[in-house]
Amino acid sequence: MPTQMTNSSSITPPKRGFMQRIKHHLNELIVTAPSFLWMVIFFLIPTVLIFALSFRSTAPGGGIGDTWTLHTWQTISNPSYPEIVWRTIWLSVVATFLCIVISVPCAFAIARASKKIRHFLVGLIILPFWTSFLVRVFAWKTLLHPEGLISKLFITLGFIQPTEQLLYNSGAVLVVMIYTYLPFAILPLYAAAEKFDFSLIEAALDLGSTPLRAFIQIFVPGIKAGIYSATLMVLIPALGSYVVPDIVGGTDSEMVGSKIYQRAIPDRNLPHASALSALLFLGVLVPPFIAWCFIRRRNINITETEAVEAAITEENKRNKSKGGVRK
């Protein structure tokens, strides 16, 4: 992330001539405008539309009506929605938690491996992540299918009754969510574990700590930054899940994403779909906000030093460029 702490006025030396200043801004405008305008038209305006259209009436033929109304938001609070919202939250939170619990030992194992094996292991973790998302979800559908391998195995072992379904329930959704999001958790945790000083664990063991205690009290806090980013990397897409509940879930494991799709495409009730999307949008802003509060409160000293350091390097850069390029 670039450190963006200065404003344009400090970059433009005040003694410059009027024409030069215009030219400087014109250059910026020419390079910035294409991508900036593209993102405003195809990202910012559509995002604002999500909120705006949720206050529009529904046209009878499907689509968007001409008048403003609060009706859609009133129907959102009807009994079936709070249940779906609640399910979306608990499925996402449990999936995120389990992903992290599984990924922490993985990150430990990869970080402790020799350099050559480390690259190989990271490659092994990334490769399935490159195969089509739909294909991976579909693979689970065939496994959990009543005639599929896992169902047959479980029936033989007596885990389930032959009449029981493994597919189309919240359990299946949870397993497949963990399957698809696990690489998102392993990679940031590994990045953090790689920088971890493992002699700290040896010190703890020498001082008489049990291995488990050293792992939980030394290693886990040591990769805290990785845990924060892994949580966000899994939780945000999990909250917006649509494909997983749609393919391996049933009617009692629908999530907000499933409802957005149903309202937007088969029902063609766009105001309703936008109200649900607005809700999801606000929902995905919550986890980063909490993380931000946490980081701010805990490491306030560190962030301040970092800010000062960043300011100094920025200043140096600017002095250099004043003497060089921008003269």
């Binding site: 405003v40 990202f43 995002t47 539309l49 999500i50 897409p237 994403g257 779909a273 999307s277 995905v284």
Partner: peptide, 20 residues
């Protein structure tokens, strides 16, 4: 704008651009 687009779930990108 460029960074937020990476973070938001796909379904929000899909529905918003459809509405547009």
């Amino acid at each position: 704008l460029i960074y937020t687009h990476l973070v938001l779930p796909d379904i929000l990108m899909g529905i918003s651009i459809l509405l547009f």
